[in-house]
Every structure is written in C-alpha cells, then in structure tokens.
Design a protein around this nucleic acid. Structure first.
Length: 543
RNA sequence: GGCCCGUUGGUGAAACGGUUUAACACACUGCCCUUUCACGGCAGCAUUUACGGGUUCAAAUCCCGUGCGGGUCACCA
C-alpha cells in the first residue's frame, strides 16, 4: 500500500486532491500593501462588543489599504450552533454597518465561505499530511484520553497528546488497516515534528516578538464528524483565501505554535498576525473581561434599544484602537473613521476598560454635529421600533419636531445633551400636550409668582413675533417691575433688596411649562409651543 | 502547575534612555460667561510611572527578582 493509497483508505470519498485546490484559488490581484482580512465568527450567538471591535479593526485596515475584508462562518461545531446562526450573524453585521467585500452571503471567488461546506478541501489537505507521514489516525476514546491526562497530572508532566503519550502514533500500518476494516472509529491527528525544547517565535504586529516553545502536541486535525478543528481550518482557509493579516483575539496567542507548525507542514506561507486584547470592565474593585452574561452593555442589542448610534460606538472604539484618533477627529469632525490612518503599533497590548461615560460624551458630541433632519429621520426609525406612542407624535409633527431638534443646534457651540435617540423623548416630552397632560411628575421647586402676574405677561407683553433680543429685553423690563433685577452684580451685593433676578423670573415660566428646571433656550421653547399652550399650562399649574 | 502577556492618575492613554516640573481626552472640583441646565472659557487634579534591586553621567523607558491582573493548556471556537 502506497502512502497515497493509505491516505485514500483513511479518508475515502474525497473528490479532489489538494493540488486541485491549490490551482483553483489564484492569488489576489491587489496592491502590494493591501491588507486582506476577515471576520470569522462561529454561529453560536449574537454579535457583541468584542465582535464589533474585531471586525471594525479588520475593516478599517482593509479599507485604508484598498484591500479586502471578507466574512467566513466557522461552523465546525454543530453542537454549539444556534438556529439560523449564519443568517443572524449576517443580519447583525448589517445592522452594525460593517461592510464586507466578499464572503458568506456576499459571494466571491474564494468560497465556499461556510466551513461546513469545505469538508472536502480540509480532507484533501489532511490527506496530503498523511501521504507525507505527518498525520495519522487515532483510535483513542474520551476515556483513554482522560486516563492519559490523569497519568500526566500524577507525574506532574505536561498535559496533552504528545511524545510517548501519543500512543496511536506508533500503531503499525497493518494494524490500523485491520482496525479500520473492523469498523473502529478514528480521527486524524497531526504527527508533530516539533520539540518542546525548540523555540518558535510569533512576530505579532501589536505585541512584538513572542518566543514560545515549539508545538509538539499531536493535535486533532480532522474530527470524528469529518470536519476540521479550528487550527487546521485556519491554516487551510486563510491560505487558500489569501488572508494577509489575521486579526483575532489574544486568546489565540497561546496556540500560535500549533498554527506556525501547521502552515509549515502544509507548505503554506505564514500570514501576519495581530492579536488584540479583549475589552474589560470594572466590577467593583476588580477588573474582568467583558461578559455577555453579566454585562448588558456587551450585547449590541442593548445599544439598539437605547438608541445609541452605531457610529458613535464606532467612534468610541476607534479611540480605543488608536488613541491619537480622537485628537485627529476633533480637528476633522467632517471626516469619517475610514479617513484616518490606523496603525498596528499604536494599538495597545493591554485590554481597555469599557468606559460608559466616555461613550456617552462621544455620543453627545456626535449628536451635536448632526443636522436636525438627520436626527429626525433616525428618530422615526428608532421610535417605530421601540416607542409607538412617541413615533406617532414624531411622524405627525415633523416640522415641529425638527424645530425642536434645531434648538441651539448648529453654529460654533451646538448644545450637547442628547446622547441617544431615546433621550429625545426624555428631554422634549413636554413639547407635546399629549405627553404633558398625562405626565405625573411633580413640578420642580421655585419661588412662586402670582398667576395674575404671569397672565399679565403672557397677554400684554409677550409677542410671538419678537426676536430673541426683543423678547429678552421685554422679559427684563417686566420682571424688573415685580422686583426681579436684571443686574446680577447688584443682586449679589444686596440680595435682600430684590425678589430675585431675571433668571429667577424665567425659571418660573420654565418650570410651569416644562415642569423642569433644565431645558434648552426658553425663548425657542415658548415660540414653538405657542401662546395658547403657555396659557393652558399656567392655568393647569394654578388649578 | 507549565507556557505566554501585561502592570503609567478615577478612566482611555502619550512618552520608544536625556526637549518630562509625565501630553491629550473623559470624569471630577472651583471660578467666569449666562434667561435655567448645559455648551463654552479659565484654572486645579500622578512631588511621579505596582514594588525591590541592578546597568548608566542620565530610567516610566534597558536587565533581574517579587507582588498583582489576564490568557492558554478540548474531537470549542
């Protein structure tokens, strides 16, 4: 039996040999510096902050080098897969506005992009290994493996399937044939040519050079279901798909020696690696990895519900990716994150702590730079999904809503208060009678003024056509008549001589019409609300 | 336990042996502006880079050790 026949015997029914695939996938025709990268999620759940971070970084580098970013679904573990896994991932990426140039559901020359559909490809390369005596079948059961582990623990030896512990490595070919023919189940393991006492070096783009012992573990290459392990799939896929940069979580650093060896043994050139640190979160006094279970804000759905724009999140992540991004962006606020040149060596080796307050600030700044029309459009979209009642008001009062959003917007110093689409209702509910009338909040405190005085102001003094300056002058004059001085310094010197300042007078009006001490420009609010509403709310307050 | 990584203020961080009395941004505090709250402006906020040694004329930066934090050791990715 030749080696080739032996390989066919162990992995029968494989349509093509590896040379076929080597010929089939041609190198990409791209600029020399173009980065080809990918998102390679396993369909085991929803996308979260960590996935966004990884895919954003990948897409940033692909875009800025005119490279390619593709999507590959790593569905080699059917046990953990959720229903509609791949579709749900595509959907999530769409919502996050991460664009792919090719990949699962996007098409491309290097597919299939669903690993379960590449079984033949992996097996073809596994056969190559067998032919070269670099892989062998293993008949060990879970129990046997467990025994080996226990033995190693007792002897304080390194744990794993290697060296003399790799007992199936030494089974003669004749016996293998006999056992296979007898129907025994087996998997394919790498016959590791490495030694624990040799060094292997990872040249990481972010972390620099890391020296580790060479791999000497006979790791599994093809599992019992015929599908590859992550390690083997990584080597085969990223070679055949011509990925230039592997950008992935740092939990993979430790298995780099395996990957290094696999690429060599398969005679593939090594790609570049960039291992990114996971995002952390402060939990009391300790710091831990962001957790899908414990941290509601780890899930992207949290931001969708809260109405925090994806672009604001990306802006925040960009500041974590390259800290000099923020300064650049503050000077180039009209540009997008894709206009900034990110670099690997400015990326931090330590995992950042997710800072909700910083996100909040960035989101506020982001909103302050949007036009009222843009916010309006997104608001309609947001409320249609999460707030029917408000959605009706927003849709039926388009002009009014835009006017409201326009208060203190534009110009050099736009107002910064809205940080999410849900904030709009929180800050402006009182602009709608429908919401005001059923609101049960109590009025914030202030020193009262008689109803007659207020009505006198509304009926005799206020004119909706006044400019802001005219309006304010009239307010000052009127308030002065009732003991509210417009001279702040005078008031400070002798507070007892006055009932208050113009500010105190305005406060009364503000609270009566909004219930709150905090609101945007009063003049604009009254103007949008109109005299009738003003009167109605005064009546309501004194009722 | 083995292997690997990290450790600069409340947070993200800059600094790549001397231009550092450790940038910048967020948060916080105070003042100013002001029709409120914000925004904005100004100022303050690490006597010092986890700790201990060493190398050097010179260390946050290089080396060693300790502590602490993290990752990884699956037929999971």
């Amino acid at each position: 039996m030749t080696n080739k026949e032996y390989a066919d015997f162990l992995l029968p029914g494989v349509e093509h040999d590896y040379q076929y695939y080597l010929d089939k996938y041609k190198p990409r025709d791209l600029d020399k510096d173009a980065i080809v990268t990918r998102a390679a999620p396993s369909p085991t759940g929803k996308l979260h902050m960590g996935s966004l971070m990884q895919s954003l970084i990948s897409s940033l580098y692909a875009k800025q080098t005119k490279g390619v970013m593709f999507l590959r679904i790593e569905d080699t573990d059917h046990k953990r897969e959720i229903e509609n896994g791949p579709e749900s991932i595509v959907e999530d990426f769409k919502n996050l506005e991460i664009d792919f140039d090719e990949g699962y559901s996007f098409g491309g020359e290097y597919g299939p992009y669903l690993q379960s559909e590449r079984k033949d490809i992996y097996q073809a390369f596994a056969k190559k290994l067998i032919e070269n005596d670099l892989a062998y079948p293993c008949f060990c059961s879970a129990e046997e493996l467990d025994e080996i582990r226990k033995l190693q623990e007792a002897k304080k030896a390194r744990i794993g399937y290697y060296g003399k512990y790799a007992k199936c490595r030494y089974i003669p070919r004749e016996e293998v044939v006999k056992r296979v023919n007898a129907g025994e189940k087996y998997i394919i393991r790498l016959k590791s040519p490495g030694s624990f006492y040799n060094k292997c070096c990872l040249h990481d783009l972010i972390r620099g050079d890391i020296e580790m012992p060479e791999n000497d573990m006979d790791i599994v290459v093809i599992k019992a279901d015929g599908l590859p392990t992550y390690h083997f799939a990584h080597a085969v896929d990223d070679s055949l798909m011509f990925t230039t940069h592997i950008i992935r979580g740092d939990e993979w650093v430790a298995s780099y020696p395996i990957h290094d060896q696999l690429f060599k043994v398969l005679e593939f050139p090594l790609p570049n690696y960039a291992h990114i640190s996971p995002m952390n979160v402060k939990d009391g006094d300790s710091i831990r990895k962001l957790s899908k279970r414990k941290d509601p804000w780890a899930a992207m759905s949290y931001y969708d519900e809260a109405g925090i724009p994806k672009d604001a999140i990306k802006l925040y992540l960009a500041t974590l990716i390259n800290s000099n991004f923020e300064e650049w962006y503050n000077q180039n606020s009209d540009k997008s994150i894709y206009d900034f040149t990110f670099s690997f060596d400015k990326m931090s080796v330590t995992g950042p702590i997710f800072d909700v307050e910083k996100l909040d600030n960035i989101s506020k700044t982001y909103f302050s730079r949007l036009s009222a029309e843009t916010i309006y459009n997104h608001l309609v979209e947001y409320t249609s999904k999460y707030d029917d009642e408000f959605n009706k008001l927003v849709v039926n009062n388009k002009e009014k809503m835009i006017n409201i959003l326009n208060i203190e917007r534009g110009g050099e110093k736009p107002r910064k208060d809205i940080a999410s689409y849900s904030d709009v209702k929180k800050y402006f509910w009182y602009m709608f009678d429908e919401l005001f009338d059923k609101n049960t909040d109590s009025y914030e405190e202030f020193n009262p003024i008689g109803k007659e005085i207020l009505l006198e102001y509304v009926n005799n003094v206020y004119d909706i056509n006044d400019s802001e300056e005219e309006w304010f002058n009239k307010v000052k004059e009127f308030a002065e008549k009732y003991g509210y001085t417009s001279n702040r310094k005078e008031y400070k010197a002798n507070p007892d001589n006055f009932k208050g300042t113009t500010a105190d007078f305005c406060k009364v009006i503000r609270i009566i019409i909004t219930k709150k001490n905090m609101s945007p420009n009063l003049y604009e609010i009254i103007k949008i609300l109109g005299v009738e509403t003003l009167k109605k709310r005064i009546e309501l307050f004194y009722k």
